[in-house]
């Protein structure tokens, strides 16, 4: 069972490596969206410092959502998804493998890049750890929840915009807690409570989302 998950992860990473441009697009989108804000609100350092957590988190949220349609679309189009549904291993395990691979390609790069962007916003350097940690716990949760939306909208017209409509409201708790972690750290309260909550949310999402997405996939392929 675990073997299949590992196999799926390796396969998806291999596919991504042969098509690196897809991974880069998401990353560049993240960078550009974050860089637009100073142009929109002005270069006042105090203001930028205040909005930095929210901006980085919202941009990460949008970037991870943008990448969602790719989780299943290709496998759906070429018939591989059908084979996954008929696999000897539970579909939820395969989905979990796919989500992890998806996060490694689209989520992890955002986490690694975020501190650099935070410096653009004059975020004090001693908060960068909290920023990365909150993203490290939050972005996998986003990928997990988003997968449900991707599975539900598989093969529908207006897929991309529809996914946004379904998934963004569900992202709100992660956004609030994730961006709140930085605010709390900046206020001298420590980000511990926020990070614990994010962790709890991630555990819950990891337990249920692959299973729900598997149900949604079976519905979508009927």
């Amino acid at each position: 069972m675990l073997e299949t998950a590992v196999f799926v992860i390796r396969r998806d990473l291999l596919l991504a490596m042969r098509r690196r441009s897809d991974v880069l697009t998401v990353l560049l989108f993240f960078v550009i969206v974050v860089s637009l804000f100073p142009l929109g609100v002005g270069p006042e350092p105090a203001l930028l410092r205040t909005i930095a957590p929210g901006v980085i988190w919202v941009a990460a949220l949008l970037a991870s959502m943008l990448a969602l349609s790719r989780v299943f679309a290709q496998d759906y189009a070429d018939g591989t998804l059908e084979q996954m549904l008929l696999s000897a291993s539970p579909l939820s395990v395969i989905v979990a493998g796919k989500v992890l691979a998806h996060w490694l390609m689209t989520g992890l790069p955002l986490v690694l890049l975020a501190p650099v962007l935070a410096l653009q916003f004059d975020v004090p350097q001693n908060f960068l750890g909290e920023l990365m940690l909150s993203l490290l716990l939050g972005t996998p949760a986003l990928s997990l929840i988003g997968t449900i939306g991707a599975a539900l909208t598989l093969g529908l017209r207006g897929g991309g915009a529809l996914v946004a409509l379904l998934v963004l409201p569900l992202y709100i708790p992660v956004l609030i807690i994730g961006a709140g972690a930085l605010d709390a750290a900046a206020a001298g309260l420590g980000a511990g409570a926020h990070l614990l909550l994010l962790g709890a949310f991630l555990v819950m999402a990891a337990a249920f989302a692959p299973w729900v997405a598997a149900v949604a996939l079976r519905i979508a392929l009927e």
Partner: peptide, 23 residues
């Protein structure tokens, strides 16, 4: 109907994946 073949993978890799999914 669909072959479940990935353009970016070789014939052998595609076949190995089909078998692995089959268990």
């Amino acid at each position: 109907h669909a072959n479940a073949i990935k353009d970016d993978l070789t014939a052998a890799e595609n076949l190995a994946i089909a078998c692995a999914l089959g268990g």
